[in-house]
Amino acid sequence: MSPQAKGVLAAIGACMIWGLSPIFYKQVSHVPAIEVLAHRTVWSLVFFGGVLALQGRLGQVLAAVNTRRKLATVGLASLMIGTNWFLFIWAVAAGRTTESSLGYYILPLVAVVIGRVIFGEAMMRSQWVAVALATGAVVLLTVGLQAPPWIALTLALSFGLYALIKKRLDIGPVVSVTAEVLLMLPIAVFVLLQSEHTGGSAFHAGAWTMGVLLISGPVTALPLILFSYAARRVRMTSLGLVQYLNPTLQFSCAVFVFKEPFTLWHMIAFGLIWLALAIYAASMFAQDRASRKAAVAAAASGTGMM
């Protein structure tokens, strides 16, 4: 099997774990979301720390925060991913997985806007159309449900900003996430101690609940490792398209497994989002094709000059 094929399979595996994770977190919906987040932080740190220890790279975690600027950057990334994780866990427990899937559908378009605003990246006309359709979908859903889809918007913005911050970190994904959860550890320990003090700790909720919480570490770490593997072997266009598997599976869990309400307003809004993503995907293919043609032309020109 070629490295490209292995990368695609790794990306599919990562997105399937992410997409089916609502079923996993639904198993602990009786535990407060903040406590689930605390357990996820602790057991993720244990798992990531074990992986890095086996690789002899634990020292890189301390190097990632050994200056004030690095510490501030990692701290901000930690805040964004912590917010994202907490809100996703809460949304699943609250029966609002449909809205969380919407957030991950609009995330690529939010990333495009962030790239335009922060880095001045050029946007094709088709990408502007996709962003306009997504904006229209959000406005329509706000009017129809008489409330803004704040869960979707917060999830998309928090992860979009997280990705922006990560661009400024010159360290690998496993090391950076380990540093991020390490900074979250004091709050996680405080939450767990407080829950134990009040007598409502999940440590006393039974073997099944504790088993799920313990596995939250590998469930967090494994897709990240798979996706990191894929990112080094797969073209960004292919990787971007595979990522749509995540919200599609989340959406399927919400509507077909959890039987969450899916109104006419949802149908219209999601239809607009899917149309926007189709246009965006087509623009990605066009950009990728143009860049490859330019690379081939440049190579041919260089060969001709020799």
Rank of each mutant, 00 (worst) to 15 (best):
V112H: 11
Q146W: 14
A132R: 06
S78E: 07
W90K: 11
L164H: 05
M123V: 12
A94F: 03
F119V: 11
S101E: 11
V112I: 14
L164M: 15
L141E: 09
L107D: 08
T142I: 05
G144I: 00
V143Y: 13
G144C: 07
A130F: 02
W128T: 12
A91W: 03
A152E: 00
V129Y: 12
L102V: 05
S158Q: 10
Y162I: 00
A91M: 04
T97A: 10
G103N: 04
P149Y: 04
P149C: 07
G144Y: 00
I118R: 15
L140R: 10
A111D: 15
S126R: 14
T142P: 04
E121Q: 14
Q146N: 12
F88I: 05
W85I: 01
W85N: 01
E99Q: 09
Q146Y: 14
L145Q: 14
A91D: 08
A163M: 15
S158E: 08
A147D: 14
G144K: 03
L109V: 06
S100E: 03
W128S: 15
L140T: 11
G136M: 05
I165N: 02
R116S: 12
V113S: 07
E99L: 04
I165Y: 08
E99I: 09
G115W: 03
V92A: 07
T97C: 02
T142D: 09
E121T: 10
A147W: 13
L155I: 10
I114D: 04
T135V: 15
Y104L: 01
Y162C: 06
A130S: 15
A134Q: 08
M123T: 07
W85E: 04
T98A: 04
G103A: 03
A93I: 07
T154L: 13
I106E: 08
F86D: 10
F88S: 04
A122S: 14
G115R: 00
T97Q: 05
L87H: 05
M80K: 04
I81E: 02
I151L: 06
A134S: 14
